[in-house]
Design a protein around this nucleic acid. Sequence first.
RNA 1: GGCCCCGUAGUGUAGCGGCUCAACACGCCAGCCUGUCACGCUGGAGAUCGUGGGUUCGAAUCCCAUCGGGGUCGCCA
Length: 601
Amino acid sequence: MSNKYRTHVCNELNISHTGQTVTVSGWVNRRRDHGELIFIDLRDRDGLLQIVFNPQVTPEAHKIAEQVRSEYVIKVSGEISKRPEGMENPNISTGEIELIVKEAEILNASKPMPLPLSDDAEADESVRLKYRYLDLRRPRMQRNMMLRHRVVKYMRDFLDARGFLEIETPILLKSTPEGARDYLVPSRLYPGKFYALPQSPQQLKQLLMVSGYEKYFQIARCFRDEDQRADRQPEFTQLDIEMSFVEEEDILELMESLFTSMMEEIKPEIEITKPFPRLSYTDSMARYGNDKPDLRFGLELADISDLVANSEFGVFKNAIEYGGIVKGFAAPGCASYSRKQQDKLVEFVRIRGARGLVTIALEGEAKQSVDDLTLEQVRSQATKFFTIDQVKAFAKRMGAKVGDILLICADQEDIVNTSLSQLRVEMGQRLGLADPNRMVFAFIQNYPLFEWNPDRNGWDSMHHPFTAPHEDDMQFLNIGDLDKVKAKHYDFVCNGYELSSGSIRIHDSQLQLKIFQLLGYPEGEIRELFSHLLEALEYGAPPHGGIAPGIDRFLMLLAGEENIREVIAFPKTKTAMDLMTNSPNVVSEDQLTDLHIRIEE
RNA sequence: GGCCCCGUAGUGUAGCGGCUCAACACGCCAGCCUGUCACGCUGGAGAUCGUGGGUUCGAAUCCCAUCGGGGUCGCCA
């Protein structure tokens, strides 16, 4: 495109344009004023170009350049010239050339920046969020936004090529119980009634299957009014997918194909594992303590309950007597950890609810076999309770070598798993085992359909109430052995993050009703909240299933960022504030009156 | 709701055993400089140390509260 502002963008200019007269517009990245000569690095979205003002040649333009400051928006015309010998700048793509300015115009001035725009200077995040439009000018943020665009475009093209239709679903929707807290929108026309923003388009995409669209996707915005984290925002984006006439395997293959080809296209320098590893939920919990394992490294957990059940060591004995378990893993080369370092690890698990952490350091050289270990080499607060053979047995089960430290936790199973899974990730990072240039995608399968909720004294859906049970487990469903029922539910994980959950859905109205009943919904509530779905399933609903990978989290991993806000153009703070527009905020009395809302002080 | 970290010129930091009401760097302003590219040199402006109390002769510094940002547990079908 060529117009009065530009004939070229910076990046397209090169040595072949020498002698041509061009016009470029952009921002003043930096100005170097030598009194006579003035150099300006002009920046547009795609690159930098050095422009030169010479008072001998064009005194008028030079006068303008004297007034120009950082981040002014200027337009310059002149001739592209090869730089003098030895003056090239290899750091920028246009470093061989420069623009000798004939005419210059200031399109807009700029106040000094409230935050540094260079990537190496990190500003306070509240300042960045307040001036997000400036923060987004920083190269790193522009890279992230461009990466985001490419990822989303890749997804669209990939699914389009496979016959998927992108269909939008409403943002003003209906509140449904359980799950996350809803964002509510009061209705003007119906006093006292509310829309809810979708936590996901779950029911709508199922209904689209009933409608016969067979392959649906959407870059869907989802809203959940829960407390935020580094990887959680009140609104976030999913690649929402649903397909008819498919089984679990079809969905997983689609995901594997999409993410494999996308990684190869967009970030070939990042190593991925093909095919994607698959673990059962039970296996993942046993070996990693959670259902979103970071598979870039081992440090697998081992259950040693059976080895210590009869020990004299109270910590272990009691835990088992009270129905708990004893698990641990070996941190390689950490036998030399000081008391202080070990105390930090103990504190780490205490914060996560564990009563403590037993450490057993196996001092010595790694080349020594564990079989030759002597009691003198074992350093632990529990040494006197165990024989050397027992310690060897622990070590072997945890895959430990001499020179490692065993980190063992004894408590209720969920506490042990929670604390050890996080300690495992912590140690993996600390020991440099979590390679930033690898992304290990994996599928977790065979989840239980239900989980017991002691607060409610009833069963909850592990995933959501539309998830289909395994056919083989229908018998347990019928006799009420709900903990034995496995679901056609799968998670897609990467590097310790849950990227998405998916499932084959229930397409039988009677079964769906039965599940609602088992979950304890009162009959009236079922009709009130889910009648549209139950009814829809009675009109020829095809078998269907889907998945919904979180785009923000995936991008965070892909961009190597520590939090999701770095890949979202206008994110909110941890307390769900938008510091740029200062929202949420009060509204006028008239607006409230329209909505039939009175604020209680 | 619990726990932890941070809050000093526009930005990033130093000062935190009470003797510097405040230092350094970048940025900003002015002057000088014809080849720089994190240009350079000289000079200058700019902070009641998040806010409010308290302790003290004296507080950026100690105590309490509060606000803001971040991390985390709970929570996130």
